[in-house]
């Protein structure tokens, strides 16, 4: 059985947030929802400041607190280490969200159909139609509705229905086809590496072999599958700067 992991090279990441965009397009996530999120942070005081970047997908913990607290088993961890949510089982209690120290869970607070893309826009408006060529967004990736894995369960990939929890799936619909997650393939500087960590020849194993690495909040015992290379874990001095739109409008 494979055991998937992701290596994130912080020395390479330039904070372009292309992975966030790729994730939104691949998974059609609603407004203000970032399954992949890149912190742009700074430390120090002017003029001695240092800027750094920290991509934050779901950590796909090997000891996931969200799986433990789920009262109905909607959150589950596959044998290959991918942590997924069954949107038909989820009752929307949001316990996984408060249990997760990484803040990766996104609850669908509203019906996402009106703003499936990034903005509420009247696409029938002639001025808008002149730009879009008449294409109305809310494209939906058909792979997201497939039942995945041996368990044949939904994975919070495509439902986006109001009142359930969703989060990064490591693009399980792509991984099961032998592809990399969308964020990994799109990264222009190869900061993200993905593969079977138990296979010594997989890209992620090769990448991690000669580099020192750390895991986020390792002291909590969650044992994440996302491993950071280079850089440094965020400390108490780290401040976030430059936030994207993170408000859900009602």
């Amino acid at each position: 059985m494979a055991k998937y992991a992701m290596a994130v090279d912080l020395d390479r990441c330039q904070g372009c947030r292309g992975c966030m965009e790729a994730c939104k397009i691949e998974n059609n996530t609603p407004q203000a929802v970032f399954w992949m999120y890149v912190f742009r942070t700074e430390t120090g005081e002017y003029p001695d400041t240092k800027m750094s970047f920290l991509p934050r997908p779901c950590q796909h913990c090997n000891n996931p607190p969200c799986v433990k607290v789920c009262p109905v088993g909607a959150r589950f961890r596959r044998e290959d280490g991918i942590v997924l949510t069954d949107p038909e089982r989820c009752i929307g209690c949001r316990y996984c969200e408060v249990a997760c120290p990484y803040g990766v869970n996104y609850y669908n607070w509203r019906k996402p159909d009106a703003a499936f893309g990034a903005y509420d826009m009247d696409y029938s408006d002639p001025d808008v139609a002149a730009v879009t060529g008449g294409v109305i967004p809310s494209y939906k990736n058909p792979d997201l509705d497939l039942l995945q894995g041996d368990e044949q369960r939904l994975t919070a990939g495509g439902a986006h229905s109001v009142g359930v929890m969703e989060k990064c799936t490591f693009c399980v619909h792509r991984v099961d086809k032998g592809l990399n997650p969308a964020c990994v393939d799109v990264c222009p500087v190869h900061a993200l590496h993905f593969g079977d960590i138990e296979d010594p020849e997989s890209p992620v194993s090769v990448y991690l072999r000669e580099r020192s690495s750390f895991k986020l909040l390792d002291e909590l015992g969650t044992d994440p599958s996302v491993i950071y290379v280079g850089g440094a874990p965020p400390g108490s001095e780290t401040r976030e700067i430059e936030r994207p739109l993170t408000e859900v409008r009602s």
Partner: peptide
């Protein structure tokens, strides 16, 4: 029940 003896195995997500 979805057994309380194992933590995170997929087998434990279903009763």
């Amino acid at each position: 029940l979805a057994t309380p003896t194992c933590n995170t195995s997929i087998a434990c997500s279903n009763p």
